[in-house]
Design a binder for these strands. Structure first.
Lengths: 221, 221
DNA sequence: CGCGTTTTGTCAGCTTGCCGTCAGCTTGCC
DNA sequence: GGCAAGCTGACGGCAAGCTGACAAAACGCG
């Protein structure tokens, strides 16, 4: 397992490296965006850990460039603490998961393992759960092979559910994910999106457990 | 599952409460250190979430006092973001785990579940007791491998019994955990839930000791 | 900018099914 | 037998969740 860690803070970079190394990964690090892009484009990694606040070339730009070039390795994005903005942009640029800083190293290892495992099971960044297939690179969703066109919000919702596919996700968590923690939203904004999303996906994809939350029917197949 | 959350920031306290409540816990909050100490000393909690930055009495002092008094419930400490110092002191004072602020609510739930499970002497997300299996991720229950669909209240009830499976749990305790002490329900609300739950689980799962309370037949396998 | 189009939050009304209450019954204990 | 603890079926209130309609943003495009 080979990992590229892109992080400009030397101390954090070192921590990441030793932690992941202890977890059995082979880790290379770089602090520079250009450098990162070059490495990611020419070498084969099982995972890239990418800090978004980089000098010389923005992490987001690097990620987009990789994806545009057809590179499909899983990317775990490190975002600034409260920055909801960064998370959204990260996911939309093709990140597979994000971790807000500061984080616990233990948590990083868990995520890294999960991503690598997921990628190993599939050829690309294609997630499947029952009749549902999500291509996190192209940001397209299809049900039973039929492509479905979703809005950004709808996509984020279904992608989040798919990422946590094997459990029931409470509405409060979804609200936080979709809108950030300052919930000035009227409660049933989420339900409105749900209705529209379900209409597009058809029945039997997203289920409700009253009093618990939402889940993907069929789970992770 | 009953949780005490000690947090002085009202907004965070509310977030914690709703999040944990959504996850199926019964949450009480207090912002005051003295108050927290008293509650933790006199009530029975399955977990305490403790912010260290408190007015009136330091969170650390509260924790030490509990431990000195022989109180052994698991305590999850919330520390300020980078404060390494606090973590060490927290652990030394008897905390079971710590979570640096700011944290993701999702993460809090995961930790809370882990601690509660560990305290019960079990390791995985799957609890088993006799013919009963409880998946705390999916919030599903199955008997002899056959999945059973439960409501939120029924789930909380059986989960609590499973956690304290090897002893007889008095109805007053169940009432308290399900509804909180302030709520004066008609006594037989619990029995009504019991009936419905038993009908779904089948006989031979939940037993009654007249005058004492309820218990899981077969205990912890 | 100005105008059409799409997306998304809000509101109101509706449906669903949870669960608390009640009334009557059964069981165990003295 | 008598009493209290506990069980159960029925019922209805009510809150969670769903949906269609509308309006306000957001976006795209000249």
């Amino acid at each position: 397992m080979r990992i590229l860690a892109v992080e400009d803070d030397a101390r954090i970079a070192r921590d990441i490296k030793t932690t992941l190394a202890d977890a059995g990964f082979r880790v290379e690090t770089t602090a520079d965006g250009e450098d990162a892009w070059f490495l990611g484009d020419t070498e084969e990694y099982d995972l890239v850990v990418l800090d978004l606040g980089l000098p010389s070339m923005d992490g987001l730009a690097v990620l987009k460039k990789w994806r545009a070039a057809g590179r499909e390795m899983p990317v775990l994005v490190l975002t600034a603490r409260g920055s909801w903005q960064e998370r959204v942009e990260g996911i939309e640029a093709g990140a597979d998961d994000y971790l807000p800083k500061p984080f616990r190293m233990e948590e990083l290892v868990a995520r890294a393992r999960a991503l690598v495992r997921r990628a190993a099971g599939r050829g690309s960044a294609l997630q499947q759960a029952g009749p549902l297939a999500i291509d996190t690179n192209r940001m397209t969703v299809s049900v039973n092979g039929v492509p479905v066109s979703l809005t950004a919000l709808e996509y984020r919702l279904i992608a989040y559910l798919a990422l946590h596919g094997d459990r029931v996700v409470p509405p409060s968590e979804l609200l936080e994910h979709l809108y950030g923690d300052d919930d000035a939203r009227e409660a049933n904004a989420l339900e409105a999106v749900m209705t529209r999303l379900r209409r597009k996906l058809g029945t039997g994809v997203i289920g409700t457990r009253r009093g618990f939350g939402y889940f993907l029917e069929g789970g992770t197949a």
